[in-house]
Design a binder for these strands. Structure first.
Lengths: 256, 256
DNA sequence: AAAATAGTGTCTCTAAGACATTATGTG
DNA sequence: CACATAATGTCTTAGAGACACTATTTT
């Protein structure tokens, strides 16, 4: 690309250069499964991560984060999105960059600098893929389980860092929406938050989240065509008010 | 490093590999200069960024962020710290990674993936360096000025992203401490916040920051050996109470 | 009626926010 | 005494936090 003329004495070949710049992706989803209770009840939810079993050296037979080498003609971000689509069959989901891993020796193939992304994929979207190729070498694991496994490379650390990041983001942004349908009940939202951040606990959550002044329109009631409030009884006998995110993202500050 | 034996058919030389993985560093500082008022007064503060003038192709003669290629034997983080120390003469300051830049063609020297760090350096620490080598090719620029300049590579965008990040962090963490002495007055803290985030405005700032319950020990009064409160009259006739950060970092949440 | 979730009533306490007022010490 | 910053007084409003209580619908 536009090589200048006075390229006096620069030659990249005179330096040792990296052997690759892959993107690795921590793909999170939340699975839901019905509790077998007498009545309708809230489902059991669990935070899962997608792993693939390596077929070749190095770390053959071990589980690893999906990922792949980026090409000269794309940004690493594009590489990550491509990889995500290959593994899950979905595009246009939340994907964000969070760290780089470059400890010497982290990859026996050479000097390989890994760029770690995290993606949040709604279970609904993953289901399609599952039907298509139910390969035994691509599986969802509960995050807790994955963290106790002997993963390839430094992927355990990457997963740990990703978990920390998603927990932080879950409480400070509205990414919880990625795990929810467009319209959801307060209980669903609360469950999702608790699934990702087990320590999160707010008594009177419904009170806080719906108080007008402070939350100032983070979520809003869903109304029908004639303005009446809409509710759902997916999870309970008594129908619950449906809400949706408004698109408003509060700015947080420790000084106000 | 520990090459396994069954390295069946992997050869990194069969792929196109990157030509370098540098770290670029956005070094922020806040300069203070006395206003010429009749009485003692708060100084004028300005957010500055350190730039260096390029001596070679490419972008010869243009200003750029300090940075350098990372080596195979170090992490990129170590590379960034090394670079920071070379340019400023200081170690052990706040430095954090924030993004990667990999748009094809961003560097005419080839496929070069830049890792962007931001560092916060106290003006006091930079002064030492200034005396040592006052090279005209290393200078502080007000951030606003730097953003209007034609910087080398995609450094304008990197600077823009770094500014956004530091503004966010300034309000959600206690990094303001990096720009303050150990012991500071409420006005100093407020000034630093406003210097980095001009939109930040809190009437009754002193009330909020010192109210016990909500801030719950973010800062604390400085006391002398016999327990008496210590104050400073650096900036005013009436001495102001000195405070220090406690080390406590509040966890923020939009849901509570 | 019991189960399971949804939502309200009510109370106390304390912070938020606004704004005027007072305090301090020196050129 | 005027200047420039520091800090308090006072008032209103409203949320936070806790917990008991009521509501809804199906098996």
């Amino acid at each position: 690309m536009n090589q200048p003329t006075n390229q006096t004495n620069y030659d990249s070949r005179s330096y040792r250069t990296p052997d690759g710049a892959p993107a690795d992706i921590v793909i999170f989803t939340i699975t839901t499964s019905d509790k077998n209770t007498v009545k309708k009840s809230l489902p059991h939810r669990e935070l899962q991560v997608l792993l693939i079993e390596r077929k070749q050296w190095p770390f053959q037979g071990q589980w690893a984060l999906p990922g792949g080498f980026s090409k000269e003609t794309e940004t690493i971000h594009e590489s990550a999105r491509r990889e995500l689509e290959e593994e899950t069959g979905v595009a246009d989901v939340h994907i964000e960059y969070f760290n780089v891993y470059s400890t010497p020796g982290r990859d026996p193939r050479g000097w390989i600098i890994s760029h770690a992304y995290l993606a949040l994929v709604n279970e609904k979207l993953l289901d399609k893929r599952k039907a298509a190729d139910d390969a035994a070498d691509v599986r969802l694991f509960p995050v807790k389980t994955a963290l106790s496994m002997d993963l390839a490379f430094d992927h355990r650390m990457i997963l740990q860092d990703a978990l920390y990041r998603i927990q932080q983001k879950m409480l400070t942004t509205t990414i919880a929406r990625e795990f929810l349908p467009e319209e959801f009940t307060i209980s669903e939202l609360y469950q999702v938050l608790q699934t990702v951040v087990p320590e999160f606990e707010e008594k009177n959550f419904i009170r806080k989240i719906t108080s007008t002044q402070s939350r100032e329109g983070l979520i809003e009631e869903v109304r029908g065509s004639s303005g009446e409030l809409l509710a759902s009884n997916r999870y309970s006998q008594r129908a619950a008010q449906l809400y949706r995110f408004t698109g408003y993202e509060p700015r947080l500050s420790i000084y106000s």
